[in-house]
Simulated assay, not measured.
Amino acid sequence: MRKRRAAAWWAALTTVFTLAAVGCEDSSGPEDGTSPFTGLTAREAPVLAVKIDNVGPARPQSGLGSADIVYVERVEAGLSRLMAVYSSHLPPTVGPVRSARETDLELLRQFGEPAFAYSGAQSKLLPLVKDAPLHPVPPERVGDGYTRSESRAAPHNLYLRPERALSAAPDADDAADIGFRFGAAPAGGRSTPSYTVRYPAAAISFAWAGERERYRVSMDGTSVPVADAKGRGPATVVVQGVTIRDSRFHDRSGSASPFTDTTGSGPALVLRDGKAHQARWERPAATRGTEFTTPDGERLAFARGPVWVAYVPREAVPTGAAGNSR
């Protein structure tokens, strides 16, 4: 049972939702016995977030196919990095694990007090990580929770053992409502067999595989394994337009670390079932989840299954005829 401080707040919040119209299910909250992150049958379990490398030497990554949610963030030099969120399934290993960013702290607030696995951080950021409402499980705290691969060069060879990490964070909060809704697709949408999210020095493409009812993922033109033996993999992809600005932190070369503001509101493109749907997102505060609505203001339901969210500048989200392949 959830012994979490945010439980009462979430219960009160969900009572104010109204019934959605065509294309959305009862928006009062997740169904009993299902994951609030995927809409699939799942047991109640704690949340583990893992910061994962996403440059060429780090691929293929391990454990992405078991993630309930994968967030794609822009980092220094125009590259991208992943934040994978686990609760429904725990793979044997996840990685390569890399360092935390300021963006992660705001993003993770919506999960209550999750366990957070990462490897290091900018020295001035470490006190903020320590004071954040989460349960840090870096290598220095969970030595037996990590292993180094001999087949890869550092720093792209550090892997997490999720079960051991969670054992070191027994008070991590269970999965709870973060605003996602699941059900039938909204009316309309534009046929979009593939879509590419572009960063200054990276690109991530999503191609609809109708026979699997999932999206295939490729990074910088190379396919990556994001589906496990049970065929998991993204059923919904969200391209979320946000404000990305320089933070007060810098990497070793002096480059400013981007800060992605995941609160507020803005445009989004929701990809599901091979179609793209224009949407709006709203997250009033860091402690709140993110709601996605249609242009008419109705809650927009995702397809049941794992969700990938790619954060891009607001102006990078297409308007007008949604979902042109890029």
Rank of each mutant, 00 (worst) to 15 (best):
F259H: 12
F206Q: 07
Q240A: 03
V224E: 05
T147G: 11
Y71K: 01
P267I: 02
F259Y: 15
T294V: 08
K130W: 12
P92L: 15
A227V: 00
T18W: 13
R326E: 13
T15R: 07
R81W: 03
A310G: 03
T319W: 03
E298R: 12
R280P: 02
G274D: 07
P306Y: 00
A153W: 02
V55T: 15
D296R: 15
D296S: 15
I244W: 02
L166R: 12
V197Q: 06
V238A: 05
S194V: 00
A21N: 09
T41M: 02
M219Q: 13
E315M: 02
D26C: 11
G56Q: 14
R152C: 08
R190N: 08
Y86Q: 09
A184I: 04
R212E: 03
P57W: 13
A301Q: 02
T319Y: 10
F292R: 02
I69D: 01
G120M: 01
E282L: 10
R304Q: 14
G231F: 00
G183W: 10
R181N: 13
P92A: 15
D251A: 04
A203V: 07
V75H: 04
G143S: 06
T294S: 09
G305P: 08
E113A: 13
H156C: 06
A285N: 15
R81I: 10
K3I: 05
R283A: 01
S99A: 14
L79E: 03
P234S: 03
D144M: 09
Y86F: 15
S88V: 10
A201Q: 11
V239Q: 10
R248C: 04
A175E: 03
R5D: 14
I69L: 12
P114T: 00
A172N: 08
T262H: 10
M219C: 00
P200F: 03
K124M: 12
T262W: 00
D246H: 09
V307G: 05
A235L: 14
A175M: 13
P318Q: 03
H156P: 09
L82H: 11
W10P: 01
Y86W: 14
E282H: 12
A84Y: 07
S247A: 07
V94G: 04
A268K: 02
R190C: 04
F180E: 00
R59N: 04
S255I: 11
D177H: 12
K3S: 10
S149C: 05
S66G: 06
P162N: 06
A7G: 08
G179P: 13
S80M: 15
A316R: 11
N54V: 09
P234L: 01
D26G: 06
G143I: 12
K124P: 00
G210V: 11
W308K: 01
A303Q: 12
A286T: 10
F180S: 01
R81H: 04
G56K: 14
P36V: 15
S253E: 07
S99M: 10
R248W: 09
T196S: 08
Y86V: 11
G63F: 05
Y215D: 05
L64W: 05
G23F: 12
P200D: 00
S325V: 01
D32Q: 15
R59C: 07
E76Q: 13
R81Q: 07
K130H: 09
E213V: 07
E291G: 11
L126I: 10
